[in-house]
Simulated assay, not measured.
Amino acid sequence: MRKLVISAVLAAASLFGLPAVAADYQAGKEYEVLSSPVPVAEPGKIEVVELFWYGCPHCYQFEPVINPWVEKLPADVAFRRIPAMFGGIWNTHGQLFLALESMGVEKQVHDAVFAAYHQERKKLATPEEMAEFLAGQGVDKDAFLKAYNSFGVKSRVEQAKKLGMAYQISGVPVLIVNGKYRFDLGSAGGPQGALDVADFLIEKERAAR
């Protein structure tokens, strides 16, 4: 009888998408341990990095799932996005993101850039095309072009390339927790699964302090 009750609870939890028991995720299964830990940007905080590309449909679909989660992160967790740099348009879009971030308007227009690519079919393949689109979002065209072509942003592009290599990524979206653990939507069991794995690893790092 006890086994039947437990089975019923597990079945109900599965049906309604509720966690029946605390998950015990395993390295090599839901996530990978990086062979060489990567330094975090804010020492003293548990860092969560999302690597993405504006042209990635899975990244676009992940946005409405990850954004509410990010907003509720506790004070000891720092979240940052890093564009994946695999060459060509990936690098162009990565430079776009880093330029917006340097201007302090990334949060204002991030969702609009995603929507422009996936809903409006705007490729945003050149700085001029980007500037024209961003002007409609309230971003000054000349200021954007200056930022996009600046030495500072180009330096950050190179840093992003190095980080992507250090994280040993081969696709996106990918999450990195505290420079130690890497996982994606596939290994974690989907968008919500990725956040559950992230929560598990955040707690793992917090407990290790």
Rank of each mutant, 00 (worst) to 15 (best):
T92C: 02
E42P: 01
L51T: 15
A135G: 15
F16W: 11
F200P: 10
V77M: 03
Y148T: 01
Q159S: 12
L96I: 05
N91Y: 00
T126Y: 05
F183V: 07
A115E: 11
K123D: 09
E42G: 00
A143T: 08
A135F: 13
E120S: 07
A143F: 07
Y25E: 09
I6T: 11
H110D: 13
L34A: 06
L134E: 03
L15N: 03
V174T: 06
E129A: 14
D111L: 08
F144H: 06
P74K: 00
P83C: 11
G44K: 13
A78Q: 13
A166V: 12
F62Y: 02
Y167P: 00
G88N: 15
G104C: 08
L96C: 03
M165F: 02
P43Q: 05
A23L: 10
Y31M: 05
R209A: 15
E47R: 02
Y31W: 03
F151N: 10
S102F: 10
I89L: 15
I46R: 00
V40H: 10
L51V: 08
A27G: 09
L185F: 11
R209Y: 03
I66C: 07
V197H: 06
D140T: 04
G164F: 09
G94A: 06
V139E: 04
E205L: 02
I202Y: 00
A27V: 06
L185K: 05
E71A: 15
G17H: 14
P83G: 12
F16M: 09
V70C: 03
A135E: 14
P39T: 11
K72P: 01
A8T: 14
D111N: 13
M103D: 14
V70D: 04
D140H: 07
V113G: 02
Q26T: 13
P127L: 04
V65F: 06
L96Q: 12
P37N: 08
P64Q: 05
A23P: 02
S187G: 07
A115K: 15
T126G: 13
G186V: 06
F97T: 01
C56R: 08
I66L: 04
N149Q: 14
D76W: 10
P173V: 06
H110Q: 09
S7A: 14
R206V: 10
A12G: 11
Y181D: 01
A198S: 12
G152C: 04
L195T: 07
I169E: 13
W53G: 02
T92V: 12
K162Q: 15
Q95S: 02
K162P: 00
A207F: 01
K45S: 05
M165Y: 05
Q26G: 07
V9Y: 13
L145D: 02
Y167E: 01
L18H: 09
F144Y: 09
F144E: 05
P43M: 05
E132L: 07
S102D: 15
I89G: 05
M165G: 15
L185Y: 07
A194N: 11
V105M: 08
K162T: 10
L201G: 04
V33K: 04
I176N: 05
Y25T: 04
R2W: 00
Y181Q: 03
S155G: 14
F52Y: 14
V38I: 06
A22F: 11
I46K: 01
Y167C: 11
R209G: 12
Q61D: 14
A147D: 10
L124M: 14
P19R: 11
R81L: 13
P127H: 03
G190I: 01
K72A: 14
K161D: 09
A75P: 00
M1A: 12
A20G: 03
A23M: 10
S7C: 09
E63F: 01
S102R: 01
A160R: 09
